[in-house]
Amino acid sequence: MATAPLIETRGIARPSGAPVRPSRWRTARNRDRLLAAATPVALLVVWELLARTGLIDARFFPAPSSIFDQMVTLMKSGELWTHMWASLQRLFLGFWLGLVPGLVLGVLMGLSRPFRAAVSPLVSGTYPIPKSALLPLILLIFGLGEMSKVVMVAIGVFYPVVLNTAAGVMQIQPIYYDVAKNFGAKRMKVFRTVALPGAMPSIMTGVELGAGLGLILIAIAEMVGAQSGLGFMIWNAWQLYSVQTMYVGLLVIAVIGYVMSLLLGWVARIVTPWRTDR
């Protein structure tokens, strides 16, 4: 049943000699969309069936319907919204706290050779440290309040942004700077019309990577050092042995990540309208 469109688009099932009419909706793209939607649905159905028939252990893999029930309960009690809001707030603040210094440092590193020589050992030397390993130190320095969580997100955003921005500025062809100079662009205008747009695709890549890393880090940070947020909700559910709540937390984090990447993709299309591969 599910394979029927596949066979038809390949033309195998057609009687020989029948004219091949191009179909409006039966394009490869639409087929891909259908398949992309069909796999998760199929998986959920199978999961539900297996859980109900007891073929998998419902204690670890509770039926999707029961997870959904739990989600509705958590929504009604407002618990889910509280945690989600706490996480989103920290993500938002941390995002900017990491993005702005990352951008500024990255551009300076890309433009100035001496600055790069001075700063790049620091940046590339601390980059390989797993950011999650910094959590105890960050908790120590910033305490158990909001700031420590915001800083964790900021650290996650900062590194990909600074590195990609510097690389983006450095890969700009020197001829564009010559053009700017020849056409009388002054310092700030060279920055605005050459360095920034030239590095923008790379900057956006950094921002997308950074946002993803920020999401990972907020979940980890909230598990250890918070009394609110989705990370806390998941950790707390483990302690209370409420497996459904755990799945709800995972689902909501996944949705946040997805929406975030949609949002950033949209921003990228706006700030780099000349790119075709977006």
Binding site: I175, Y176, N182, T193, P197
Partner: peptide
């Protein structure tokens, strides 16, 4: 004083 038409591609891809 002068404006140059550069050798090779020199128009800004982002404009």
């Amino acid at each position: 004083e002068n404006s140059m038409v550069f050798q090779g591609d020199s128009i800004f891809p982002w404009m």
